[in-house]
């Protein structure tokens, strides 16, 4: 049971974060781009307040995979850099913490554009 439990929580919390976004899309006509931005900012705020850490400890990938987890990483990175280097950490911490995600998305995106072309809608 101890092996399966983290997976169940990851499924439930991850699924729930998606459901909240789905309701926002369907009911408020928020565009998906705005949802992504809101989720990252929400992650920064919740991460900054120290709340999101509990969710990560509890749900693992269920909390770190949604874009709120990306925001949490930014907040965490900035806090660590500020602790280490003072005010300059405000500028250096965020992008460093998010570097892998941003670089991977950009490079794989570019590779996709080199290797493939867009197809008509099915």
């Amino acid at each position: 049971m101890d092996i399966i439990l983290p997976y169940i929580w990851a499924f439930l919390i991850g699924g729930l974060l998606c459901v909240i976004a789905q309701i926002l899309i369907d009911k408020t006509k928020l565009t998906p781009a705005r949802i992504l931005v809101s989720y990252v900012v929400a992650g920064v705020i919740l991460g900054g307040c120290g709340i999101y850490k509990y969710l990560i400890d509890f749900a693992g990938a269920g909390a770190s995979t949604p874009l709120t987890g990306f925001g949490y990483l930014i907040a965490k990175g900035i806090r660590e850099e500020v602790d280490k280097n003072g005010l300059i950490g405000v500028l250096t911490g965020g992008i460093s913490a998010a570097a892998a995600g941003i670089a991977a998305a950009l490079i794989f995106g570019l590779l996709a554009a080199i290797c493939f072309r867009d197809k008509r809608k099915q």
């Binding site: 699924g15 998606c18 995979t65 949604p66 874009l67 995106g109």
Partner: peptide
């Protein structure tokens, strides 16, 4: 829908 949008897959 949001099931693929919200995880990091949506960003990618």
């Amino acid at each position: 829908g949001a099931g693929t949008l919200v995880p990091i897959t949506g960003f990618s």
